[in-house]
Design a protein around this nucleic acid. Structure first.
Lengths: 143, 143
DNA sequence: TTACACCTTTGAGTTGACTCTAAGTCAAGT
DNA sequence: ACTTGACTTAGAGTCAACTCAAAGGTGTAA
């Protein structure tokens, strides 16, 4: 498929995909004889995974560290993959998973904080008294 | 307290705090007679709340929309706060909470995806067979 | 009094991540 | 043959969010 369809499927713009390739964020895409990129399903899946790494806060630099050894799976299946790059990927992914778990905890805490603030403002607008809101006003949250 | 201590307590740099004030991200901090910012605990709490909004993905622009009516609580207590700005804050917070809930769902999905990839790479390194890893290799994840 | 460690300002520089422009190629349709 | 709409490149431009620099003020301590 061409870059336009790949863009549609990944939710990235064609511009962005070219920019990513130039920046070494993923292995070079195969070209047709006139130099046009021909995306396979697996390329698109790779892009989608990268985009998800991105969405969950990984920097492009870290992503290119992750992808620098190219498409590992094909070589794994061919039995010609050294273990070192695989270990490298593994440690990047494990670090990222730890970050995600922390993010998950933070989000939960913050949802609670926001919910408290919401119920405080709500009770003000409704003119009702609200125990939670009163607690909230104890000076730790003068906003 | 001075800006240095406020920086330590909030985890922001003094530079960043000045930059935030300049950008209208929070109500101007009171100054001593020689123009030095004097932070109260409530200012620091406000900053921490803002920093958390930031950490959970709110843009500075949206944060300043949130804070543009200044320190509401003081005026609420004095009974001199119109309801409109409170409604405005409420709707910003509710939008943000929705985003957070979505983020929470996405992170969970992605933790699962990463965990699968991790167990695939692990089983490769250990040279063991792994049903999950085999499923994973079905062509949807050629990475 | 001199040194030091703070503080202040404005404006410029940096970084990351796009996003677009200009100038051009190529293939298919009318 | 010509138009249309894809594609290509290198390099420039944009935007958010800092981050720093220069030049100077203030207050305490030896």
């Amino acid at each position: 498929m061409n870059i336009k369809e790949a863009a549609e499927r990944t939710g990235l713009s064609a511009h962005t995909i070219r920019f990513y390739e130039r920046s070494g964020l993923f292995p070079k895409i195969k070209r047709s004889k006139n130099g046009i990129r021909e995306f396979r399903d697996s390329d698109v899946n790779f892009l989608i995974f990268m985009a998800t790494l991105k969405k969950t806060g990984m920097s492009l630099e870290d992503i290119s560290e992750f992808t620098k050894d190219g498409c590992i799976l094909e070589r794994l299946e061919a039995g010609e993959m050294p273990k070192e790059p695989v270990r490298n990927r593994l440690s990047i992914l494990m670090d990222h998973r730890n970050k995600l778990l922390e993010q998950q905890r933070n989000i939960e805490l913050f949802i609670n904080a926001v919910t408290q603030k919401i119920s405080f403002y709500e009770s003000y607008i409704e003119g009702t008294d609200n125990k939670e809101a009163e607690d909230f006003k104890d000076g730790r949250n003068k906003v």
